[in-house]
Amino acid sequence: MSGMIEQDWIWGFVGGLMIGGAAGLFLLVNGRIMGASGLLGGLVDGSGWSNAGERIAFIAGLVLVPPLLVPLYDTVDTHITDNLAVVIVAGLLVGIGTRLANGCTSGHGVCGISRLSLRGIVATVFYLLAGGLAMALARHVLGII
């Protein structure tokens, strides 16, 4: 069991390197910051239509490439809760919050922290604390997840 956990850490690190590589490629070649919420949000609210093609191509890769790797695994499951009310509230919070903050785990987290950007670091501290608090309340106090 402990061996399995350590393997998760190694694959986590390997996957992390791939994520960093993707962010680096997007920055050095396209000159863009790889932020998932900004890339999608700019399409959804119209603020990023001037480079819509680049955004759509990125999202197409993000959506279409993972299923090509799924056959390499025994099972791939997001284990998302069956409670659709929780899913909807969570989705709305993530959508509104990331756009207000101008970034999420990829933009503020990966790209912001590595640039030693004060905004990225502060955002990451707040979403980690809020996530931990939401988890503690929803799981250990309310028992809804």
């Binding site: 997001t78 903050a101 502060v122």
Partner: peptide
């Protein structure tokens, strides 16, 4: 930046998914 990150974090914790 602060309000948005707090809202995002709450949603992230509830569902376990970010964008």
């Amino acid at each position: 930046l602060v309000i948005g990150s707090v809202l995002f974090g709450m949603g992230w914790g509830l569902a376990g998914l970010c964008p």
